[in-house]
Every structure is written in structure tokens, then in C-alpha cells.
Design a protein around this nucleic acid. Sequence first.
DNA 1: AGCGGGCTTTCAGGTTGCCTTCATCAGGGA
DNA 2: TCCCTGATGAAGGCAACCTGAAAGCCCGCT
Lengths: 221, 221
Amino acid sequence: MAILVVEDEEGIVSFVRRGLENAGHRVVVSSDGIDGLVMALSPDVDLVVLDLGLPGLSGEELLRRLRLRRPSVPVIVLTAKDAVADRIANLDAGADDYMVKPFSVNELLARVRARLRTSGQDRADALTVGGLTLDLSGHTAFVDGATVALSAREFALLSVFLHHPGQVFSQSQLLDLVWGYEFDGASNVVEVYISQLRRKLGAERIRTVRGVGYRLSDGDR
Amino acid sequence: MAILVVEDEEGIVSFVRRGLENAGHRVVVSSDGIDGLVMALSPDVDLVVLDLGLPGLSGEELLRRLRLRRPSVPVIVLTAKDAVADRIANLDAGADDYMVKPFSVNELLARVRARLRTSGQDRADALTVGGLTLDLSGHTAFVDGATVALSAREFALLSVFLHHPGQVFSQSQLLDLVWGYEFDGASNVVEVYISQLRRKLGAERIRTVRGVGYRLSDGDR
DNA sequence: AGCGGGCTTTCAGGTTGCCTTCATCAGGGA
DNA sequence: TCCCTGATGAAGGCAACCTGAAAGCCCGCT
């Protein structure tokens, strides 16, 4: 799971790397064509960002050779040339996408997302805190890999904690957030649901802060 | 094997059509969004060229609904807007490529070739999840090898689940996606169809998530 | 146009399991 | 120790869901 950037200009490398890493990708870099081709052949590389103006082996040549060995890995080409004829030539040489310098890093990220979406299947959005994972689109919880069945209310309550790990929520806040009730001193629903969650997830995952509320335990404090 | 062009401007339609047909593609055209969506769902369509300014159903909305049902068909978006923010929005909405009007038909052809090259090898006309296979072109389902006949509605409903295994869909989402209805609290069609699918496929293949919706069971959760 | 058959939708009755409340128990702090 | 806050098991009520059957609709056929 990595994105390979083949580019020799220091400045571009550093800002592309920063953007991709902030977006959660692992990034490997090569500044020359021959080396870049070798790395691009590794099955660990999911996507290639390729500058055409390279020392060693030209970008076009790299692309042609890469396509012979790995026809399906997505390649996004960076170039200074913007004539229609150049674009056509590059797309036909095997580029999946094409960006003209100077470009916005946000647009590059969007194109990366678009290419990864088609190649790998989209991963559902999930929240994880210390061995506890909540699959939001699948309404499922996992504790250390094992699936745990949760009712709609239990799920809603737990997701509040996972969205704000470590934060303390009072009973009346939770009543408001999860149940939509105004404060109702007479009910102990929240307590009951906390109890149920503890039985399903393990008692130590939700801590009581006496007189204040509850908090998701991230670690052991 | 056809390319669908969803575009309402006569002039663009005719020169895009000429270009694509000269390149050897079969072309079908729709000039309005609702109709376009229906055609785009046909497994016969290999690629969609989509104008965003449409009557009926906006291009963005078409793209969103199409992605839920056919996540992998390549879509090339045509638009007049060229701000970086627009490009990003469209790529994230599910566009695979993006062209700004006015554009060269040769570049469009190059982009079509680039998209067909990648989608070609992994375009399966069948979806499989845990012993359940859906033959998209034959409108047939197979459960552990045995064929099961499905009506059009049953098929459409099941295909939503198979395109997004593990994801929960609410009754109103399904009503919207499969039936095209707005929310209608009074009907229980969805329940009836889920029931029918269970009878045909085996009860445990579709799980109820009480108070939330339904999910295709991938494995045991 | 009339007809037949399958697909779709509605309806009604039955079933399930979630939600809430209540009563009782545990445990920490003064 | 006593009191107060929180924990937990049990049970009734009820909304959500399931499903068989019948009515309605659409489409192809004659």
C-alpha cells in the first residue's frame, strides 16, 4: 500500500509528499527513471505519480516499459507541456491521468482518490480507537477483530464516544445527543446502555468519571 | 459494448458522436438526466460521457446514483466550469475524468481509450460475494452454483447490495435507489421484496439491522 | 381490443426483539 | 457506618419487521 512519486525537482517532491502523507498515504520517492521503473514494478506500489522530465530514463520510456509488465497500475503524469497533441500522446502511452504544472495539490489528491477508487475497492469509513473499530457504513463494531452485534441505540451511543475519544460526556449531554431528549432527571437509560455496552465490549473500555459522566478509555488512564 | 453520451446540446452531441463512431465505437445518446441514468445502468454501456448541465436530473445527481449501482463504469465529465474546486468536487463525486468545454474531440478520444484500457480487463459482468453471484448481463443470480430466476425489481434490489457488500441501506434509501420514489412511510414494498429475496437466496444472506436497514451478509457479521 | 399471466403493490395479522422502567445491589466518599 | 451515585437483571409494552394472500397493474400475445 504505497504511492510512488517519480520526480527530480526537490520542491515538487516535498510538497507532493506532504500532501499525500497528510491524506494518509504511504509515499516512496525516486528521483531517477531507471530506479523509478524498478520501484514501480513492486506490487506494493498502488499508484504512480510520474514526472515526464527525468534524468536517466525518460518518463515516456518508463511508462512504456511499466505498461508491458504491470498494465493495470494507475499512473498520473505530471508535465509542463500542455498542447492537446501532447496530452493525447501521453494518454495513449498509458497514462491514466494528466496534470499540467503548476498544479494544485488538492486537485492531485482528488485525482489520486479517483484512480484508487476504481482500482482498489473503496474502503468503508471506519473509526478506530485502541482495538475498537466502528464501521459506520456497515453499522458494525469490532473488538480486536471480532465482530460485535449492536442495536441502533447502542451503536449511536458508542459512535459519540468514538468521534471524540477521551472526552467526557455527561448523562444529560448523551441523553440530548443520542436520544434527543431534554434533560430528564428521572430516567437512567444512559446508565443502562453504558452497562450493556460494557458487557459487549469489555468493562474497561468505558470509564465512569464519578459525578461528571463517561469517557472512552484510550489506553489506560 | 457501447458508449453512452448524456448531453442536451445538439451541436456537441453530433460532433462527439461522429468522433466516437469514426473510432469504431457504438454510441447511444440521451438528452435528459433521468433517461440517461436508466441507460447508464445497462450493462451494455461500457463508458459514459456526461454533461453536467442537464434538464431533468442534474449531472451531479445522475453520477451519484449511478455510482451506487455501478461503481466501476468509467465516467468522463464534460463541463464549462474550470475552477480547481469544481474539478475536485466532480472527481470526488465519482467522475473518472474531466474535460472543460470547449475541448478537442481527439483528446476526448484519447481519454476514452485510456479509460477503456483500464476498465477493460477488470470489467466483470458478474459480481460475487460469498457464494452468491449476479450475472449482470443475464439478469440471473447463482447461489452456490444453482441458478435462481429473479424479476427485474428483485434483481435491481439485489444488485445494490452486491455492489456494496457489508454496507447497510435504509428502507428509504432503497426506495429511492431501486424504485425512484421519494420517502413514503406508508409502503412496505421494500420489506416484501427483501422477504422474496430471502426465500429465493436463503434467509441468512440478507441481514436486518433493526431500526437502520438491511445489509448483505459477508461472512458472519 | 381483449385476454392471460407474471410481476408489483397493498393489506392484515402475527412475531420478534429493542427500549424503557423499576427494583435491587454494589461501591466510593465523608 | 451511612448516604448517594452508579450498575445491573428482569419484564412489559410497543414499534419495527415478516409473510401469506389478494388485488392491481403492465405487457405481450392473439
